[in-house]
Amino acid sequence: MAFEEDAARTFVTEVLNVEGVQPEEWRRCDLGERWQMLGTCAQLYCEGFGLENVVLEVDLDLAPGMYGSCQDEGDVTLVTVGGWVLELDHPKEALETLFHELRHAYQFQYVAAAVSAQGQGETNFDLATAAHWQQAMHTYSQRLHTYVNSSIEHDADRHAKDLLNQIYVR
């Protein structure tokens, strides 16, 4: 989708100017400054990709290895990042988690908007992608095998890694 490619390019350009994104800056930041950096990146992502009503929170009780989550609550999309990623020496894991979970927010909102638009006869959406994501969301499971093989997980992983490569591999 051309919109996503343009949004990603603009987003990466803006993120490169955020204090704390570069590893040497990250190491000088305290946990509050690191969280603020993630908040700024989330805001830029939401603006660039057209997301609305996304709430970002940190979960200090999330065990290492559990990176984050994204919950569609209907009127708000809740993106959670594990607090332990803020303590790492490099921002990569924190950003990858954030981008991955924000991609899920994008998937949720894209499907909802496509369904609504289709009902009104609009065709500004890739309906095949929306239908595929919608089906994957209905069959999504917390069982590890189903979770790791889910197409929405693969898409979110690819998206997050693509953004990170544009930020750190220039």
Rank of each mutant, 00 (worst) to 15 (best):
A2F: 06
R9Y: 06
F11W: 07
E14F: 01
V15G: 03
V18D: 03
G20N: 07
G20I: 06
V21Y: 01
V21M: 03
P23I: 05
P23S: 09
E24C: 00
R28K: 14
D30R: 11
E33W: 00
W35R: 11
Q36E: 11
M37S: 02
M37K: 04
T40P: 00
C41G: 00
Q43A: 13
E47A: 11
F49K: 01
V54M: 08
E57S: 14
V58Y: 00
V58H: 03
D59L: 02
D61N: 13
A63F: 08
P64R: 07
M66D: 07
M66H: 10
Y67M: 11
G68M: 07
C70F: 05
D72K: 02
L78P: 10
T80K: 15
V81N: 03
V81Y: 01
V81H: 01
G82A: 15
G83Q: 08
L86M: 14
P91L: 04
P91N: 04
A94E: 03
L95N: 05
F99Q: 02
R103W: 02
H104E: 12
A112I: 03
A112F: 07
S116T: 12
Q118M: 09
E122K: 14
F125K: 07
A128G: 02
W133V: 15
A136W: 04
A136Y: 03
M137T: 07
H138S: 10
Y140R: 13
S141M: 05
S141R: 01
L144H: 14
Y147R: 12
N149L: 12
E153Y: 05
A156V: 12
A156G: 08
R158E: 12
L163V: 03
Y168W: 13
V169R: 05
R170L: 07
